[in-house]
């Protein structure tokens, strides 16, 4: 095994495990590996806390640009009502 395949020295692998852990959990062995890495790597400790914070932001996120506040316009609803009536007739329900 090349030395950099070892997670203790590998931030790329560590950050992958961090994102997986924060969302769904990782295996006991992976937890140990990650803890070893984090013990010696302040940059990935920072990534860990920021990854969690982004999770929080995403969970509370609501797209702002297009708001459905006004709902559908009346003309469209009228058309909808008509197409429903047509379908009901067609299906004989």
């Amino acid at each position: 095994m090349k030395w950099h395949n070892n997670i203790v020295y590998n931030c790329k692998k560590a950050t992958f495990l961090i994102d997986k852990k924060n969302l769904e959990g990782i295996s006991p062995l992976q937890r140990i590996e990650l803890r070893l890495h984090l013990a010696g790597c302040s940059v990935c400790r920072l990534y860990y806390s920021q990854s969690r914070r982004i999770d929080q932001m995403l969970r509370g996120f609501y797209p702002t640009r297009i708001k459905p506040e006004n709902g559908l316009d009346e003309a469209f609803k009228k058309g909808l009502q008509e197409s429903i009536a047509k379908e009901i007739k067609k299906s004989g329900a």
Binding site: H4, Y9, N10, C11, K12, K13, V43
Partner: peptide, 9 residues
Amino acid sequence: PFFEENGHW
């Protein structure tokens, strides 16, 4: 492009 080939940031 976040990591070096050796896995470091």
